[in-house]
Amino acid sequence: MDNDAYGHVNNVVYYSFFDTAVNRWLIERGLLDIAGSEAIGLVVETQCRYASPITFPDRVTAGIRVVHLGRSSVRYELALFRNDDEAPAATGHFVHVYVDRGSRTSVAIPDTVRRALETLRVAPAPTLPTSTG
């Protein structure tokens, strides 16, 4: 997953960075046992906007916040920062829907997970007025 033919990390790797950042955050807090959690979050939507290239061996840091926390779903917004850059190389979102591991039917986000996700929750950015004229 090093540089592709165009000399930068391929775009699909950015999605891997998003997935790794979210799951690492959950695992480090004891909220996800990949092999044993009864309720698991499945990715149902993801999106990425690219601003500048990441190139191996750049150091990549991810910022995570929660902008929506529903009964069974959570929408994360993420930013990927290259080395010490202040502007993100990429931004995007990632939506988990919580399901029962065995049946894959929707379940409520477990209370312990919900409480932890609340610590990442921010209000959505205000919508700017549009000009009609």
Results as ranks from 00 to 15, higher is better:
G41T: 05
G30L: 04
N3F: 04
Y98Q: 01
T127S: 10
R59Y: 04
P126I: 10
H68Q: 15
T130M: 09
E38I: 08
S103V: 01
D84K: 10
R59G: 06
N83K: 07
G70Y: 10
N11P: 03
T46S: 13
A90V: 04
D100H: 13
G30N: 01
R114L: 01
R115S: 12
E38C: 00
G30V: 03
Y15P: 04
A108V: 02
T130H: 04
I64R: 15
S103L: 01
F56W: 08
S106Y: 02
S16V: 08
A5P: 01
V107Q: 06
L26V: 00
A89G: 04
D2Q: 13
E28D: 15
V22C: 11
G63E: 12
Q47V: 06
V99W: 06
S103G: 00
D84V: 02
G63F: 11
T55K: 14
L42I: 15
V113D: 00
G63S: 14
R24A: 06
L120Y: 12
R29D: 06
N3C: 06
D85E: 11
A90R: 07
T105G: 01
H93G: 06
V43I: 15
T46G: 07
F18G: 00
S16T: 10
T105R: 15
G133P: 05
N10R: 08
S73P: 03
N10P: 03
T119F: 09
V60Q: 05
E28A: 09
